Computed example of a mutant assay.
Amino acid sequence: MTTQDSAALADHGIRRREKRDWKGWAFVGPFMVVFALVFLTPLAYALYLSFFQEKLIGGTAFVGFDNYVRALTDPQFWEAFGRVVLFLVVQVPIMLVLALAAALALDSARLRGASFFRILIFLPYAVPAVVAVLMWGYIYGDQFGLTSNFNDLLGSDLITPFAREWILVSIGNIVTWQFVGYNMLIFYSSLKTIPTDMYEAASLDGAGAWRTIFSIKIPNVRGALVIATIFSIIGSFQLFNEPNILRPLAPNVITTYFTPNMYAYNLSFAGQQFNYAATIAIIMGVITAVIAYVVQLRGSKSEVR
């Protein structure tokens, strides 16, 4: 083959690659446009707003990182942040353990009516979030509903879901009720991908049910557990619907800065402090992304080991 032939083939290959690239962009292009409009543009605009302040004299002025300094020294922000961290540390492990236990029970051949129980556990996730909170708000109400009736029956205020010391537990119960089924489905799907050869080998080695669970099933759902943990962390830092809807029932307990998302929302729509609200949102986004990345990184290292 001559040099000219090689050069011609190389040019032909380059033209073919360029043609394939354009076809690929034709498929990816619509998604990239939508992604830029609904994600990148609002994110860029929020970042832009965070560098400005609305002044009484002079209108909007560029202030650099002043809003970030204010946020990092804001006791209300840190109180809200500490509250969602406490919520995350307590509620997420309980929810994931319950979801994993449900998935293991459904995967077990000993459970009769597994399909019925699978639908029953997943059903709360199908209930719209607002409807679920309103339903539980009626159950929790100390002046009406099931809690009030039960306390009247006992003749004392034994159950107080809206008390300051119990409000996080009450909200955690709602979130757990809603999302156990969702996480259960993630774990159950992962369990169904385990090769049957592993179970047969374990049976030949004389492994019992508990040994099979801890030596085969749980190690093989580690990836699903990492994903569920990341989703749960993100959901905890985004906590908004439950406390915001329950606030009229417990106005003295659930404040406007009960969670960072509620704080940003009320700063923006009630206090007209759009720039500072954008700053709070950016900070929470960065914190959530960093923690989720650390969890994913540690999960990946555990899988390699």
Results as ranks from 00 to 15, higher is better:
54 E>C: 06
71 A>E: 08
275 N>K: 03
55 K>Y: 12
23 K>Y: 13
23 K>I: 09
50 S>C: 14
224 A>L: 10
245 I>K: 02
25 W>M: 15
35 F>K: 05
66 D>V: 03
133 V>N: 00
258 F>I: 00
103 A>P: 04
91 Q>F: 07
146 L>Q: 01
262 M>F: 13
291 I>G: 03
83 R>D: 02
188 Y>S: 02
89 V>P: 08
44 A>D: 09
125 Y>W: 14
64 G>Y: 07
234 I>K: 12
57 I>G: 04
6 S>F: 13
256 T>P: 05
223 G>I: 07
98 L>S: 07
93 P>F: 01
113 G>F: 01
58 G>W: 08
277 A>S: 12
64 G>C: 08
217 K>T: 00
184 M>F: 10
107 D>Y: 11
276 Y>V: 04
15 R>K: 11
135 M>P: 02
14 I>Y: 03
256 T>N: 14
92 V>S: 06
276 Y>N: 06
133 V>P: 02
165 E>N: 09
193 T>V: 04
13 G>F: 13
190 S>V: 02
39 F>L: 14
239 L>R: 00
274 F>G: 11
254 I>G: 00
110 R>D: 06
61 A>R: 15
285 G>A: 04
16 R>Y: 09
207 A>L: 10
94 I>E: 02
142 D>Q: 13
102 A>Q: 06
52 F>M: 06
88 L>W: 06
93 P>A: 10
100 L>M: 15
167 I>F: 08
93 P>T: 07
126 A>G: 04
234 I>T: 11
170 S>D: 07
234 I>C: 03
215 S>F: 10
264 A>G: 08
59 G>M: 05
86 L>S: 15
287 I>G: 06
169 V>A: 12
260 P>F: 03
143 Q>T: 11
176 T>V: 13
